Simulated assay, not measured.
Amino acid sequence: MRPLRTITPPPIARLIEALVKLPGIGPKTASRLAFYLLRAPDEEVMALAEALRELKQQTRLCEICFHITDESPCAICRDERRDHGLICVVEEPLDVLAIERTGEYTGVYHVLHGVISPMDGIGPEHLRIRELVERVQREAPREVILATNPSLEGENTAVYIHRLLTPLGVRITRLARGLPVGGDLEYADEITLVRALQGRQEMG
């Protein structure tokens, strides 16, 4: 197979190579996207470029929950109508979006930005676990829901956090087993997530 740069102009080849690095994008899809953008109106392409620039320059992590936001604290943490005595701990910002889509959860969140995974060189110090412990000490919520994914890494992370929070006297619960083992919250349907939240159980 000939190298991409020998059969396409360098600007197109560079774009295809950049798109392939995105999750879920293979070489064929990247090529289709690149040629779509090549044919698209200038305004559409410039709008996309501007959106990408703003994504990097105007977003940050919330100082309280570490969700992605354009101002800190984020809208959820600022909302006085939310139940601030109920903290749902999730792996990634996408998990917040998945739970919010249910329209049933009224508490607040804490985003870890990953899970403990020794095989990948990710330890507790690489996540927002220390900040969670400090937050529980500071805010004294009545309940912390550990909503990490039902994978081996997610379960191990939940057990680790449970061990740290238990001495603080807070009620600690885990999502019910309605979620498939090894599945991700972001791909679960709303009904499954609602049932998992409603059926959450105390961690022993």
Rank of each mutant, 00 (worst) to 15 (best):
T106L: 07
T29K: 06
Y187H: 12
L112S: 12
M203A: 11
E104C: 15
E131F: 04
A196P: 12
R177K: 07
T29Q: 05
L152Q: 06
I87N: 13
G183D: 03
V115G: 12
L38K: 00
C65L: 05
I191E: 08
V108D: 08
C65P: 09
A49L: 11
E186S: 07
H84K: 10
P180R: 06
V96L: 03
N149T: 10
P180I: 07
R32T: 00
G199D: 03
D70A: 00
V133Q: 01
G114H: 10
D79F: 13
V45K: 01
R60S: 07
L33D: 00
D120R: 15
G154R: 02
A40D: 06
V90T: 00
I129V: 08
P73H: 09
T59S: 05
E125V: 11
T102S: 03
L55A: 09
T29P: 05
E100S: 13
E80T: 14
R163M: 15
P167H: 10
A40Q: 11
L97V: 02
I25A: 02
T157I: 00
P118K: 15
T29D: 08
R2F: 13
R60F: 08
Q198F: 12
L55E: 07
A49D: 04
P27Q: 13
L4H: 09
R174G: 11
T148E: 06
